[in-house]
Amino acid sequence: MEKKIEIIEHIDPSVIYKDLSHPASGGICVFIGAVRDTTQNQKVNSLFFEAYEAMALKEMEKIAAAASKQWNLHRLIMQHAVGDKKVEEPVVLVGASSAHRDDCFEACRFLIDTLKEKVPIWKKEFFDGTDEVWVTPHP
């Protein structure tokens, strides 16, 4: 399996088909997370993402390895953006290609869910006015 794992400034979703297409793959599945303009009824202006980059890449590698063990994938991608991100900008992209759709659908769900749970990346929300807050998910 070929893989691309990156922490980058800007995610470019327009190249995703080229990144994931493979002669043996009949299915490609992609999830893109973007900046939403509202959180709990508060208007969000932007988000800021910070990563413990060396460890984040290691954790992403582990997730990719687990996915490639569980499903039959040809290509896999995991990208997370860092820095200031405005509404509608992509901040995370995961995807996989496989012979049939079940493998890439299931792998894609696993990739994003596990990334959100394990990878050391933090997001700060900037609201209308001066409010800013680090997002700390509830247990």
Partner: peptide, 10 residues
């Protein structure tokens, strides 16, 4: 050594 508060990527 790094302190890892609750992560919130994605």
């Amino acid at each position: 050594i790094a302190i890892i508060p609750p992560v919130s990527g994605g």
